[in-house]
């Protein structure tokens, strides 16, 4: 079996998705965890520590309910903004399918325009 042949095939499949600079993680955290201030800070810390290993991490956004308990979009998601798509792709490869607090994390490229408009619903 020519493994290189397979490798090439897999690579072309992987690139059909258009990379962005923003990675969105889902399934990692629950709304309950976010409502606990201490836990929220720790989660933020864990994300920053781990996710800056893949490149220049510009910002981490973890939406949570505000003081009034008002419903906002994107609660439970984690947004990782990188300086370039390459770093973002690295992060996606490593973090997707990895466990965070026992949950298997899902990672996908998030539309940059929406992210910059603080639209976390996509």
């Amino acid at each position: 079996v020519d493994l290189n042949l397979f490798g090439a095939g897999m690579a072309s499949v992987a690139t059909t998705e258009i990379p962005t600079k923003v990675l969105c993680l889902t399934e990692a955290i629950s709304a309950d965890q976010l409502s606990d201030d201490e836990e929220y800070v720790e989660i933020l810390e864990d994300m920053k520590d781990e996710c800056s290993k893949f490149g220049t991490l510009i910002n981490v956004v973890i939406p949570r309910l505000n003081q009034d308990g008002e419903e906002i979009s994107g609660v439970g998601k984690v947004f990782l903004e990188y300086s370039d798509t390459g770093s973002c792709a690295n992060a996606k490869n490593v973090l997707g399918g990895r466990k965070f607090g026992g949950n298997i994390v899902n990672a996908y490229y998030y539309p940059e325009d929406k992210y910059y408009n603080r639209d976390y619903s996509a």
């Binding site: 493994l3 397979f6 490798g7 897999m10 720790e42 989660i43 864990d46 520590d49 781990e50 490593v94 399918g97 990895r98 466990k99 965070f100 607090g101 026992g102």
Partner: peptide, 17 residues
Amino acid sequence: KRKSRWADEEPKPVVQL
């Protein structure tokens, strides 16, 4: 030195056959 919530990185198979 608090333990990260991230699980250790598991080596993924290079090629998924």
